[in-house]
Design a protein around this nucleic acid. Structure first.
Lengths: 200, 200
DNA sequence: GTCTATAGGTAGATAGAC
DNA sequence: GTCTATCTACCTATAGAC
């Protein structure tokens, strides 16, 4: 056998939790997707909660890691924004359901859960980018923008279309493939949009 | 008695479904919040599903109605964008959990549900605004942008900070009040951002 | 480690008294 | 219309055979 049972479970859990959310996910379905017995889920992960934690922390960590990588890089601001949009959109195109899953569970599980997640593994660190933006503003190389809001704008423009995807697809009547293609062309659109918005 | 039992139930259901989502919401909790007996929920709405439908369609319709109102108004583009951002942000500030709730359920309930909702009541209509943007581009009064993406940008910039609120609050360590204040100042930031992004 | 069987608890829904 | 009591189904979790 190539993959261990534990890995099979994790993959199935990732798939089911992402699609259904914690509350609606069923241990039986995870077992079915994994092609193993339901009892094994508890043998390996003790409880639904613990299994969910494993999956969630990994998914959230993925996000944080990739964001931080770009945000902390040593690059001119415009290049960094371009690199961020391209890399981040690529992650989202490969995992279109990830952002709604993460945000969703953070919403429902309450403060204690959020704090635990943020203290546990790697979390997004916006400070390097915020600092860099401040410097550019002070040097007069970009328009006078609030750095916090600019970072928020970058994330919003990339992530929201994936989070609101079911609604837009429903309204625009396009299939999954067409929508993801649209997101591919969106990269350039976002980069130009931000560039024009902050240039002096 | 001032409000009918049915209205009490609807208010409580709105509150609980919005906070917990459909799957995690409990009929008992809705009854407790409403201050009435659990049996009455079924007397008035037959099932959890039907109660949820009533709540959801109304919440979604609210969104659509307000969006369409501004989008179809007879106004110059820049004014319209400004009016949209201000009105839309006001709705979101008054109902900070609404966007995640709506988007969330559309994500989890599947295509059939999305289609039913879109066919049932009022749905967002972006065409008037998209048409107006096209005209402005052709007249050379704004930069050459893809109208669809511009509309998507407007929605993204407004809605995303509310959807991702738990994460940002967790990272930035600010309380609810401070975050909503931040959203108040964000209105101007978004308007300026878009304005600069599309001006020729 | 993997399976079957089942315990234990909970939630939606109904029946029936008032 | 409103309440109490209860049914039924389902789901997590465990026990125990192999």
């Amino acid at each position: 056998m190539e993959v261990t049972t534990e890995e099979k479970i994790l993959r199935a859990a990732r798939e089911v939790f992402t699609r259904k959310g914690f509350a609606a996910a069923r241990m039986q379905e995870i077992a079915d997707v994994a092609g193993i017995n339901k009892g094994l889920l508890h043998y390996y992960f003790r409880s639904k909660n613990k299994l969910f934690h494993s999956v969630f922390i990994e998914a959230f960590g993925q996000f944080a890691l990739r964001i931080n990588e770009v945000f902390a890089a040593d690059m001119p601001l415009f290049e960094k924004i371009e690199a961020f949009v391209e890399q981040y959109m690529d992650i989202l195109i490969s995992n279109p359901m990830l952002p709604s899953f993460v945000i969703n569970e953070l919403n429902q599980k309450g403060d204690a859960f959020v704090k635990e997640i943020l203290n546990r593994g790697s979390k997004p660190n916006f400070l390097p980018l915020i600092g860099q933006i401040q410097m550019e503003v002070q040097a007069g190389r970009i328009r006078e923008v609030n750095p916090f809001h600019l970072v928020l704008n970058m994330l919003s423009l990339c992530a929201f279309p994936f989070i609101a995807r079911p609604m837009f697809q429903g309204i625009a009547q396009v299939d999954d493939e067409a929508y993801l293609k649209l997101m591919e062309t969106r990269k350039r659109e976002i980069i130009d949009f931000i560039h024009n918005a902050i240039r002096v």
